[in-house]
């Protein structure tokens, strides 16, 4: 639960950091770090506008979307803490929970009968279908490397200092960042700032949402970012506290050592989340958006990279070439 709670805490600053970095990069001062959440709270207080075409699915979708992301957050591991909800194969549940949210989200967009929202729904369905293999190959690679099938197990057996872990970790972090960008419909596949409905993905799907429903969706989107950020942070947090030169130097009672290690991990977690947010802001500021028609190619490339990583791990761990 520690990972879950920390992720929720980091979600408070996450969208603010992205916004601030983007503002600074474009030469503006930018709003306060809490501004995105202030907007969301404002939305929670507003009344709604509904299209007469919509049905109960339109109203159900934001709730399911947010609930699935909250459930997935529960699976977020934290080193040194026993996972309350994790189990063997929990990443399969992780991916399929997010898929359930996506299905409802797609249907909510189709429910409005707008051709633009149909377009967005269709793109979302295609991109998420193409992204999912990359995620599964990545986890297949990590589970082959660590011999574990749960998210917690994978990270606790994944020694960052190990022989092969460095390269596998680097590739994994790259892939996770890209997957997070696609799953959250950011650059390079989608641009949240775009003004043209014709080229939108995520933004066009929420066109008809307003008030509380829109607030639920935006809460979900922010939580989804820290969900992936939390996974990435686990690569940097040492699972074994003895490994740290810092804790060895303290030479206190075991309790103090554990406390120091935990504090260190918490600060690493927060730092990684902040850096992830800053990285997103920088990427969005300096990277051009891909042509829509090129997006599938880009997404499939991620799967290929993951596949290469898998074969690399096989080569290294099993001596495929003798």
């Amino acid at each position: 639960m520690t990972g879950t709670l920390l992720a929720i805490v980091s979600a408070i600053f996450f969208p603010g950091i992205i916004l601030r970095v983007k503002s600074i990069a474009s030469g503006r001062k930018g709003p306060g770090l809490l501004q995105p959440w202030k907007n969301i709270i404002l939305l929670f207080r507003k009344s709604s506008v509904f299209s007469t075409t919509t049905s109960f699915i339109f109203r159900l979708a934001p709730a399911v979307y947010l609930a699935t992301i909250c459930c997935a957050l529960m699976l977020l591991p934290f080193p040194g803490m026993p996972s309350a909800f994790g189990f063997e194969g929990d990443f399969i549940l992780f991916a399929y929970l997010l898929a359930l949210g996506k299905l409802l989200f797609i249907l909510g967009a189709l429910d409005t009968g707008s051709s633009f929202e149909g377009m967005g729904a269709n793109r979302e369905a295609l991109y998420s279908m193409l992204t999912e293999p990359a995620f599964f190959i990545l986890l297949g690679t990590l589970s082959l490397l660590s011999g574990q099938l749960s998210i917690q197990g994978i990270f606790s057996h994944f020694q960052f200092a190990g022989q092969f872990s460095l390269i596998a970790g680097a590739i994994s972090i790259y892939l996770l960042v890209q997957i997070a960008m696609i799953e959250n419909s950011r650059m390079p596949v989608d641009d949240p700032k775009t003004h043209l409905e014709l080229t939108m993905v995520h933004e066009v799907m929420v066109l008809d949402y307003s008030g509380v429903d829109l607030a639920l969706i935006q809460t979900g989107t922010n939580l989804k970012f820290v969900l992936y950020g939390g996974l990435i942070a686990n690569f940097f947090m040492p699972a074994n506290s003895d490994w740290l030169p810092l804790t060895a130097a303290i030479q206190g009672s075991p309790f103090t050592v554990h406390l120091m290690a935990a504090l260190l991990n918490v600060s690493i977690f927060m730092a990684v989340q902040a850096m992830f947010a800053a990285a997103i802001g920088l990427m969005e500021s300096f990277r051009a958006r891909k042509k829509l028609a090129k997006n599938p190619q880009f997404i499939v490339t991620l799967s290929s990279i993951a596949l290469i990583a898998f074969i690399l791990v096989l080569l290294l761990t099993r001596n495929l070439i003798r």
Partner: peptide, 22 residues
């Protein structure tokens, strides 16, 4: 979440109209 949503929307009047046509 649905109950929360209902509670928040309880005393607010929703507006109904056509789908936003961009």
């Amino acid at each position: 979440i649905l109950l929360l949503r209902l509670r928040l929307l309880k005393n607010r009047e929703a507006t109904y109209g056509p789908t936003w046509g961009c």
